[in-house]
Design a protein around this nucleic acid. Structure first.
Lengths: 190, 190
DNA sequence: AATAATACTTACTAGTTAGTAAGTTGTCAA
DNA sequence: TTGACAACTTACTAACTAGTAAGTATTATT
């Protein structure tokens, strides 16, 4: 029986969307099943436990990110264009729809999610930060980015601020997120 | 019967701690009751609904913040000392114990919390940001803070970055939070 | 045509959730 | 001493949670 060949992908899409919208503790198998007009057990057939589903979402996201940063379309960009691409990821999460990033969502609920999902979250955050550190160092070296201290500290400020800004946009409106991105760029470039 | 005269305060303390630890969807009346060695219904007696309890936590926090910023011990400080006091609030939340700020916790779960709690969260975030904007503007005027653009944008970056950094500290360790605070200070002062 | 595998549904469990209604106990004031 | 009130407990409900076991229908393979 093949009702939907991409059912596994669609479940992951929905889970990812729910994570960004209501968080890990905010959605259930019933929510996903209802969207797909199937029964709860159908979701359990594809992802036996919620922990596995959550981990699969993050694993896919990590793979996606690694594919992008190793692709020539990003790899060969100038540092300031790389940064624009990076901010674009967060902009495309649509703060205007109240979505936040996966890292922020999972870290906010960190102490009430399964251990395996905590580990995936750690790995994802590390990978994002490592790439940003390298990009900032590259840009400083090239003389296009200007900041005091090392790239490690600056990367932490930028990543945590966009993560926080997506959350802040829920309370204070999506323009708050745009303002944070613009201020970060201004801090680096002027 | 007066078993504990401060029971209401103790419930608020516990609820606040749970919010910072596991989030609104991560704790229940049963968790609070267990800590106090009473039954669930005892908590409902003091706070009929979880929504009211959540709101009461935030109201108390807002009052506390207003009291501090209107107190001479903060009001009369130099801008850079005001900022140190402000960062101190977040440092005292103890990132090393995996705690995050209330604003970040509630905004991460924003789309799955009651409307009244969303409003409290909005008000709290606004008040923090307004104070930070004024302090940054005051410091720039006095020549002790240096940043491009206006205080509104810079305040948004700083506030969202410390909010995000407390969450990031869960995945990458408490030193990540310290690094973000130090980088923010360096960006402003050097 | 028989068999096996896939992708489900039906029906269930045990645990947790917020919340309520009614009864109990201790304290205090008239 | 009586009664009112505060602060509970007991006992419950209806809804939801993740997860499972067994059965069913469709499709692919031999």
């Amino acid at each position: 029986m093949v009702r939907n060949a991409n059912i596994k992908r669609v479940i992951l899409d929905l889970a990812e969307s729910f994570l960004q919208d209501v968080g890990y503790n905010g959605f259930s198998y019933a929510h996903i099943a209802a969207e797909l007009e199937v029964k709860n057990a159908a979701i359990h057939y594809h992802f036996p436990s919620k922990e596995e589903l959550g981990c699969a979402v993050i694993k896919r996201y990590r793979d996606r990110f690694q594919l992008w940063i190793n692709n020539a379309r990003v790899k060969d960009l100038a540092p300031e264009k790389k940064l624009d691409w990076f901010f674009g990821i967060y902009t495309n999460m649509r703060a205007d729809n109240g979505k936040i990033c996966l890292v922020g969502s999972l870290e906010a609920e960190f102490n009430s999610i399964p251990a395996a999902l905590q580990e995936e979250t750690k790995a994802m955050n590390r990978e994002l930060l490592v790439w940003l550190e390298a990009t900032l160092a590259e840009g400083k070296e090239a003389g296009v980015f200007h900041f005091n201290g090392d790239a490690v500290g600056k990367a932490a400020v930028i990543l945590s601020s966009v993560q926080g800004a997506l959350q802040m946009a829920r309370a204070l409106g999506p323009r708050k997120f745009t303002a944070v991105v613009e201020q970060n760029k201004q801090d680096l470039l002027v």
